[in-house]
């Protein structure tokens, strides 16, 4: 500033963001900014060709991620990010396809697609941002709201048992399952990179503060206090049995990498089965030109 000219400031993640769409619509202290940063860090680490990565979101606060990320980005209908992504991936298996959406979108209205994509081991990475509430519509109860939590449609406290997302993912067949909070930026980034390297259905859950709705309704304090809560109450336990990572109201949150295993992907299974049955009549599907040796 000494020469009197304004300094040129660049967002460090400019290459990955649609700067013409910034500022974003998310509230201050929302964990979505951090979640997108973790994704950007993961892509930096992976060094994949960004032109070959697609991102698909559904509807909701997290559903807006696709709109801010400068990749081929698709904002689908509510709950349908996974089937949209399935179409992209199967039609061009060379694409890396990431689904970035919220707990309500992926686990309630999209729950059926989530469990079946896990069962099939569709080669997708799902980043599920869990803020325990339907935030975009004003704070209604979600399939992840802890028992007892106040939501606008459970004004006397939630009385339905929530889903434990890592357990759901693991039991349906996901090959990689991790959970972090929005406090764990670098650990989340590392998990996203691992998940994207892993062929098959991988899930990274990010516990995300919503100070505007969830925290305010439940008198949990402001954004800083929520981060302090994560800091004091996150228990890192790699390899924890997903059955044991339920989240109760203001209980400690078990985080870490819970599942990392190998299963044939949908396309692997298809190619194996067809090759066995059809022999030379079948040309393996979706094999990258790079994988074919040109002699």
């Amino acid at each position: 500033m000494s020469n009197g000219k304004p300094s040129e400031e660049h967002h460090p993640m400019e290459a990955l963001l649609r700067m013409d769409r910034i500022p974003h619509i998310w509230c201050s202290t929302c964990g979505l900014g951090t979640s997108v940063s973790a994704f950007a860090l993961a892509l930096e680490d992976l060094q994949y060709d960004l032109d070959k990565i697609c991102i698909v979101s559904g509807i909701g606060c997290t559903g807006r991620v696709a709109g801010y990320v400068k990749l081929d980005s698709f904002h689908a209908t509510h709950g349908r990010a996974i089937p949209f992504a399935t179409g992209l991936k199967l039609a061009n298996p060379q694409l890396k396809v990431v689904v970035f959406s919220g707990d309500g979108d992926l686990i309630a209205i999209g729950g059926n697609h989530f469990i079946h994509a896990a069962r099939r081991n569709m080669d997708l990475t799902v980043i599920c941002v869990n803020n325990f509430i339907y935030a975009m519509t004003g704070g209604q109860v979600a399939p992840t709201s802890p028992l007892g939590a106040s939501c606008s449609t459970t004004p006397y406290g939630n009385y339905e048992r929530p889903f434990n997302i890592p357990h759901l993912a693991e039991s349906c067949g996901a090959v990689y399952v991790a959970r972090w909070t929005a406090l764990h930026l670098r650990r989340t980034a590392k998990s996203i990179a691992e998940a994207m390297r892993k062929p098959g259905f991988s899930v990274v859950e990010i516990i995300c503060p919503c100070s505007t709705l969830y925290a305010r309704r439940n008198r949990l304090g402001d954004g800083l206090e929520l981060m302090k809560f994560y800091h004091e109450n996150s228990i890192i336990k790699h390899g924890a049995d997903p059955r044991d990572v339920d989240i109760d109201f203001q209980s400690p949150i078990v985080v870490g990498k819970f599942v990392d295993r190998d299963r044939p992907t949908f396309i692997d299974g298809y190619n194996r089965a067809m090759t066995a049955k059809l022999g030379e009549k079948f040309e393996p599907y979706g094999v990258a030109p790079a994988e074919v040796h040109d002699g």
């Binding site: 399935t86 199967l90 039609a91």
Partner: peptide
């Protein structure tokens, strides 16, 4: 399988119709 296409039986018609759109955007 003999013509280089890919068939998937989805979990419901919501998913089927949405997968068509994704596939079309990937060029199919």
């Amino acid at each position: 399988p003999m013509v280089g296409g890919i068939f998937i039986q989805m979990e419901d018609e919501l998913a089927s119709m949405c997968a068509l759109i994704g596939a079309s955007w990937a060029g199919a």
